[in-house]
Design a protein around this nucleic acid. Sequence first.
DNA 1: GAGACACTTTGATCCAGCGCAAATCGCCGC
DNA 2: GCGGCGATTTGCGCTGGATCAAAGTGTCTC
Lengths: 234, 234
Amino acid sequence: MSRLDRSLIAGLPMFKGLAPADLDRILLQARSLRIAKDQTVFEQEGEAQSFFLLLDGHVRVVKTTPDGQQVIVRYISPGELMGIAHALGRTTYPASAIAAVDCVVLAWPDHIWPELAESFPSFGTGTYKTVGTRLQETQSRVVELATEQVEQRVAHALLRLVKQTGRKTDEGILIDFPISRQDIAEMTGTTLHTVSRLLTAWEEKGLVKSGRQKVTVVEPHRLFALAEGRADKS
Amino acid sequence: MSRLDRSLIAGLPMFKGLAPADLDRILLQARSLRIAKDQTVFEQEGEAQSFFLLLDGHVRVVKTTPDGQQVIVRYISPGELMGIAHALGRTTYPASAIAAVDCVVLAWPDHIWPELAESFPSFGTGTYKTVGTRLQETQSRVVELATEQVEQRVAHALLRLVKQTGRKTDEGILIDFPISRQDIAEMTGTTLHTVSRLLTAWEEKGLVKSGRQKVTVVEPHRLFALAEGRADKS
DNA sequence: GAGACACTTTGATCCAGCGCAAATCGCCGC
DNA sequence: GCGGCGATTTGCGCTGGATCAAAGTGTCTC
């Protein structure tokens, strides 16, 4: 782990306020892994043996139904924890995590969780707050799925990605990792066909620019209006 | 609070393993409330001032969208905590809680949460596990909403209620509080009309018996088969 | 026990979005 | 530069459920 990583880590919410020596003690128990694009970090149903901190890259968390359909639960960005199932009383991962690009992660053996949480209360509570936040985000998605039309759901999904991983370019805000129509469909409970049609329609209206595995949001505010159900003139 | 309540409480997961004296100290800080049917325990957007333990009754947790549509996030059963927003770093309730029947709840002032969690680690971790469980349940609902047809979703919803609050009767398993077609629709992202049609169809097949604000599941296994997408002959 | 009200059923119509199929396009490796 | 393959676009028909409308039914109040 580089010096750079270390200073990045120290700034993360769950490590905030830790004495440098304590931070070292925690970090020493982790090993650093390089995960190639499309490799899995952990697998649904797999026995939970580690929890992870994403240092660099983007990870897709996916649930697969018995009949093979996939749903993207969320994307993990650098600085976020993942696979903390065990910390929450599970012994098995509830979803798979797949690298959307080449990634670097820190992995801790699961069994040290209780010790960590106990020795460093701020680490524990920080993490629990994260879980609380995710619960609320997930509940919002339930509301979305239950009440909104496909167009609004896709708009919301894009805006969420923009906020989470958007990178400013001269054309607009680019979603900073390769993402296909299929991926967007799996985030919103629709089909790649419908997503494709929506994107071309939006492109004609100048809301977005998109290409192969790439989406740039040109006019976030107008897209937001769409997401809120306000119809878009022009 | 009656002696009966006290022994019930002592058996709950988050109070397990607490010395009786400690339990008393915690309970003394709560006040007991009676909530009439259809009254709200706390309100969406309201400033979080308390968290609650449901002692008796059933509570509906509801999110309302800006345009007035409602979604039932979950039902709370006796022995469950609710309104723990603040414990998870929120200052405001993300949903409303409405008594489905006359209820009895314990209410603690929010500000004692940190003290409680610190003094009684098992209380803290127990609660966090609950949150973890709810996160996973909610994620499963996202998967359901994203991949299943209405019929399967409604079947799943009923089975969940049966498991959570089912009471055995001579006709089958009765959902133990008044529940309308509209309620079921709000749990599954559909309309009361569609739910009504489904229930009548199922009734003809002998899967359920239902009436005004009342559903009895007669053949859970066949309903389960439906929920799983396996078609039902007969 | 009459009336009112809330809940439920049922019919009829409509359309958003899915499924299927086929063509096209962009990118990679050789 | 030439395949080849995965991603995308686009057309078309179909249908699961929503929407709209109206009638029926159980329960409570006075």
